[in-house]
Structure formats: structure tokens, C-alpha cells
Simulated assay, not measured.
Amino acid sequence: MSNETTTFILDYAEVHHDFSLGDLFAYLQEKTGIKKSSLSWYLFKLVNENVLVRTGRGTYAKVMKQVFSPQPIEEVKEVYGLLQSDFPFAKFCVYQGDIIAPLQHHLSSNRIIYVETDRDSAETVFNFLKDKNHDVYLRPDKNMIYRYVDMDSRVIFVKNLVSEAPLQEVSGVPMPTLEKLLVDILRDTDFFYLQGSESDRIIENAFNLYTINRNRLFRYADRRKVKKELSSILENLNIQ
């Protein structure tokens, strides 16, 4: 990449908190005569390098906050490795409940390993993990968790993976993006202990600490039928 063009882009991003491709293009045209296709390539590279972040469709910002990219623990890697070998064509999202802790206001222990997969595969995956002598629960609800689950143990919850859920690959493991995690906390019955005032604080902390793609967040919230609830929470928290 041209150092001069990159410098111009980053200088512009420093002054303009959120900016559109069109506005940046108009600015750079006067300075460099750059083509829009070339500018798109520069932006693509800078986003991949975590220098810029997409904040919406055709809008960008300089990365000022952390990128939410928690590392999978060894147990998660082992479980995913098992699943990959026996279900090579299935889609998964696998992560440990500990990744929620940095977002919480009132810290509560959650050492669960979450395995999400297609609805049609969930029971088969549950039986497979059970046969491997894992302590595993299929789509547990509030009552089941109250009665039988120690949230401070490394048991496994097998859940449905919503189609088009936003995922990220970290150390070879498909894990949830922050946008997915926030919506799931609002929607899923096994996150009952985080819902209400605590989920409001989690959302507030997430916006304060991390970069969030609003388009991705609201698109997934719409799929999970919590878009109105999420909008209301953001409005009450005065998050623009």
C-alpha cells in the first residue's frame, strides 16, 4: 500500500469519528486522484489489519477501542477438534462462558462450554459428546439449569445455531462475535441469570470497551426478534 495514501486515510479518520466511503473518496480525490476501486482496496486492507473498523454499510472508523476476540481455552479446542473429525460438514460455534466476564457488572461464574450447531444436528452432537463421557445438556432451560447444573463446572451445553449468526474464527475455532453474544444474552433461556438490569449493564460495558458493528448487531437482533428490545435498551442508556 502507498504510505502517502494510507497516511491521508488515517489522518482523515483521526478527525472524522465515523466517515463514509463517499466522503473519504471526495477528500482523497482532491489530494491524490485515487480511483474508488483502489480506495475500497485500501479500506479492506486497513480493516483486516484492525487499523479501521466497519461501523455500518459503507461507513468506517479508526479503531480506538478494543476488538472483542477472546481466545478459546484448551478444552474448547479439544471439543471442537472432536466435532470436526466426526462432523466435518456441520457448522459450529464453540466457546467458554468465561468470555462473558469482562462485560459483566456483577460477576457471576460461568465455566460452561457452549456448542452451537444446526438444529437438525444438535441431538446427534449431544449424543456423540455424551458417548465420549462428557457431562452434556441439550438445550437446557432455566428449570433444568437450576436443578442440575453447576455453572462453575466445565459441562457442555448443546444449543441451536441460528442461521447467518455472526461468527469469528479465533485460533482455528469458530466463536461468537460480540454482536452475537449480546443478542444471545438477551434472547436465550440459558442466559436467564444475566437478563434484566444485568444485561443492560453488559450492553453498556460492551459499547464502552469494544468496537461494535451496529449493522451486524441489529441484523442479528432482527433475526432473533429482539431488535425493538435492543433499540429500547440503547435509547435508555443514551447510547447513540
Rank of each mutant, 00 (worst) to 15 (best):
H16Y: 10
K228C: 00
V158Y: 09
D23F: 05
L103A: 09
Y137R: 08
R57N: 10
Q104I: 07
F92G: 01
K180P: 02
C93H: 03
F68S: 11
D135W: 07
V47L: 04
D150S: 14
A13H: 03
S108W: 05
M1Y: 05
F157Q: 10
Y210T: 07
L83D: 04
D141E: 07
R214A: 05
V155M: 15
I145V: 12
D188E: 13
S163W: 02
Y137T: 07
D150T: 08
F128D: 11
F207A: 07
D188M: 11
E30G: 07
L234P: 05
P166I: 03
S171Y: 01
D152L: 06
K45H: 10
L167P: 13
P176Y: 01
G56H: 03
P72K: 05
G196A: 08
Q104L: 15
F44I: 03
E204W: 06
N160H: 15
W41E: 08
D150H: 12
S38H: 12
E204P: 00
M1F: 08
H17W: 04
R139E: 12
Q195D: 09
V173L: 02
T55Y: 02
N236I: 01
M151V: 09
L194H: 08
L24S: 00
F157Y: 15
K77M: 08
Y60W: 10
M144F: 11
R216T: 13
A122W: 07
Y114P: 02
F157T: 12
E74M: 05
I202S: 12
S2H: 06
L186P: 05
L138T: 05
D118A: 11
P166S: 02
I185N: 06
D152A: 15
I203V: 12
K31C: 00
N160R: 13
N205L: 05
V76W: 01
V15R: 12
L167R: 13
F128E: 08
T124D: 14
S108R: 15
N236A: 09
I113A: 05
T5Q: 02
V226W: 01
K225Q: 12
L129V: 10
F192H: 12
E179P: 09
R216Y: 02
K35E: 14
R111H: 15
P72D: 05
Y148T: 14
R224V: 02
E179H: 04
K77H: 01
R223H: 06
A206R: 00
E179V: 03
R119W: 09
H17P: 09
T59D: 02
G58R: 06
I9C: 06
L237C: 07
T117N: 06
L10M: 08
V15G: 04
F19L: 00
F44W: 08
F68H: 08
K227D: 11
Q168S: 14
K228A: 11
K225F: 14
F92Q: 00
S38A: 10
F128V: 06
A165H: 05
E204H: 13
A221T: 07
V115Q: 04
K91L: 03
V53G: 05
F126T: 06
Y95W: 15
N238E: 12
P166W: 05
Q168M: 14
D120V: 08
D190I: 07
G97T: 13
I185K: 07
L182R: 08
G58L: 09
A26Y: 04
V63W: 07
